[in-house]
Every structure is written in structure tokens, then in C-alpha cells.
Amino acid sequence: MSGPNDQYDPKQVSALSEESLAATVADALGAFAAASDSASLKAARLAHTGDRSPIALANREIGALPPAARKDAGRRMGAARGQINAALAARAEEIEAAELEEALTREAIDVTLPVALAPQGAIHPITGLMDLMGDVFVAMGWEIAEGPEVEAEWMNFDALNLHPDHPARAETDTLFVEPASAHRVLRTHTSPVQIRALLNRELPVYVVCPGKVFRSDEFDATHVPAFHQIEGLVVDKGITLAHLKGTLDHLAQAMFGDVTTRFRPNYFPFTEPSAEMDLECFVCHGASVGNPDAPCRTCRSEGWIEWGGCGVVNPRVLRAAGVDADVYSGFAFGMGIERTLMFRNNAEDMRDMVEGDVRFSRSLKGESR
């Protein structure tokens, strides 16, 4: 800064002259106008308003003026700085608006397009299939019955004509609930629900019983310790094996379309006579039987696939539930939900059904509601 100038010398403060200030303002306005983005405008701002800018250096020279001249010089300096700051603010606003417009154009989103705001779940295929099978029977006028999963041993075995020494009552097959003196088990089938229906409902009884059951099984591709069954029970006057065959044929067609079925004799303690219901193989339709050149993995070249057990209700079961077996007769059946699901979708590994992967649930046809 120049020293005091009591004898005011215009040459010593030429930067404060009107011409110099006008030139400084013009240079600043030109630099601001030439700036095309925020970065270049920042450089122009530092060059023309910073501590080492011409206008800042000129402002320091005011102290070199005699007192009489400082007021006039200060007025000119204030006007010049005002012009520069106004031009800077205006240009900054223009560049900010232009950059915002460019960003909006570059990042534009078509808000009319559908968008998934959150991952979509799916009903588990086991649940969906149980509902679907239940709907088949509700449409025929049946009722859906439910019962506890921890069941009395008498309900699970004795009432169903399974004597105390039956292999199914061993710990190798059945999961008992401690203490053993309580005689409670995790139900091994939904048949106890049928007994409860006979005990609690007025005859005739037409019920279907879907639910979870438990067995002491290995966890592999075809077995899991906790799985699902659907069982049906009819007790009425004049019920025959023909009613059973017609009911199961209707269920098979609802589940698999135009499919051929057959009854194969078998034995169950709670039905007499008893049968296994088989479905014609969906893959080979029996063509692999006796044909080693075209084996079928699905039915193992047998032509048929086992679906479930059925039969006429044993009179001992009716009497255990207080039903007059001389007046009433009935039929019962049961099949696995997982097995039905595998047949409908050509699934090979039952473990996929318990992994909890939503992609598996979405991939199965007709099981979601």
C-alpha cells in the first residue's frame, strides 16, 4: 500500500480513476459472461473478486488518498464492486439453472412406466395347493376340518385300529412328546382329525382334512420329517367303494387333467377293503413298460405312479367313534401334498419346498393364488 499522500497525486492511485475502474468492471463482466460452467465461473470469480484481483488491489489504494478524496474514490469503488458482484450473481444463477436443466434432461425418468417398489412375495406352493385341493371338495359340498398337531396317542393310533404293537407306533417312525406318560405324539397323519369329526359332528359326515404331519424320517430328496397330507372322510348311509372311486377320479382330474387312474389292492388297519390309488405315468403313459430301449425315470418303467391310500372305513373305526356300523358306512383316503406338488410340476427334490426361496414359489404353475 502506498504511504500517506497529503499532496494528492493522481498517478499514485491511477487504479481508482473512473477509467481504470470501468476497465476492471468490463474485464470482470466479460470473464463472467465467458464462463460456461460452474468450474470456469469459479475461476473467473477468484480472478476478479479474490484477494489478488484488480478490484481488491485498487480498493487498498484508497488509504493512500488524502481525506478529501477518499469519499469520492470510495463511492466509485463501491459502484464498481456492486456491478461486479451483481454480474457474478446473475451469471451464477444462469449457469446453475442451465446445469440443472441439463441434469434433469440427462437423468430423466419415465414416471409412467410400471415399477416394482418392493420385492413381490408369493404364497408358498404347499399352502396354495392345499387351498386348491380344499376348494375341489368345498365345491362338492364337503367341509374342511382341522385339528391339533400335538395329538393324543389314542386319537392317532388306537381309534384307527392300530394295535399297541404296530410298527408305526415305534419311536423309529413316530415322534413322541415328553413325558412319555402323557401319551402324546406329533401326529403322523391327519386321520385323527377324522376321528374328531366323527366325535364332534352330526352324521352324515363329509370332511376333508389338510395339514402338517410329522414322521421320524430322513431329510433327503423324497423325505422330510415334517410334511403335509390331505385326507378325506365320508360316513353316511349306503356308501360304497364306487363312491370312493368316483370322488378320487374327480380329484385326480382336477389336479392333473385327463389322467387315467387305477385301484391296486393293499392293506391299512383303518380301512377294509383297502387300496392304493395309482396314476398313469405323466411322462411315458405306460410306453416304457417292458421297453428297455425307452426307460422312464418317473415311473421306473412301471407305467404307474403311486399317489395315495384309500378304502372303505373299517367298522372298528366307526365303533371307536360311537358310530353304528350296522347303519352307516364310509370311505377314507389320504395323499401327500408334497407328492402331488411334485407330480404337477415335475419337481425332483422335496428339499426345495422347505428352503424358503421365493423364486421357487414363483416358478411353480398354478400353485399361487
Rank of each mutant, 00 (worst) to 15 (best):
S20C: 00
P167N: 00
H166S: 02
R52V: 11
T49K: 02
A118K: 12
P164D: 14
S361M: 12
A325M: 04
C284L: 05
T105R: 14
A39P: 00
E151I: 08
L318Y: 02
D110P: 08
G257W: 09
Y206I: 05
A26E: 07
L203R: 01
R215G: 08
T298W: 08
L244A: 03
I239S: 06
R262F: 03
E231T: 08
F227G: 04
K11P: 00
A275I: 06
F219Y: 14
Q12K: 12
E272Q: 03
K245P: 00
V193R: 06
K42G: 01
K237C: 01
M133D: 03
T188L: 01
P119Y: 07
G3C: 00
A64H: 00
Y267N: 07
E146T: 10
E272T: 03
G309R: 01
Q83N: 05
V235Y: 04
V205P: 08
V111L: 14
Q7I: 15
A325E: 15
P125L: 05
A97Y: 02
S216C: 15
S274Y: 07
A294I: 12
R91Q: 14
A15V: 01
A28R: 02
G286M: 00
P4A: 09
R262W: 01
L129E: 00
N5Q: 13
D349G: 10
T298G: 08
L364R: 14
T260C: 10
M255L: 15
E61K: 11
F343E: 12
A15W: 02
A275Q: 06
T261A: 10
R215W: 02
L241E: 11
S38A: 14
F219D: 12
D131R: 15
G246W: 04
G232N: 05
M77D: 07
G82E: 14
V234L: 14
A44C: 06
H166F: 05
E338V: 01
V317Y: 07
P119T: 08
G311K: 01
W142N: 04
R75N: 14
H166L: 04
A168R: 03
L241C: 09
T261S: 12
E280M: 12
N5E: 14
E143L: 13
T298K: 11
A320N: 15
P225N: 11
A56K: 07
I109W: 11
D249T: 09
R300T: 09
P4Q: 06
T112L: 13
T190H: 00
E102T: 13
P273R: 08
G290C: 13
P114G: 04
E280Y: 09
L318H: 02
H166Q: 03
P295E: 05
A31R: 03
A79G: 08
D220E: 00
C281T: 00
N346T: 00
F157A: 06
P66K: 08
P210L: 06
A79E: 14
I126N: 13
E218V: 11
Y328T: 03
R215K: 06
A86N: 15
L199I: 07
R319Q: 13
T24V: 07
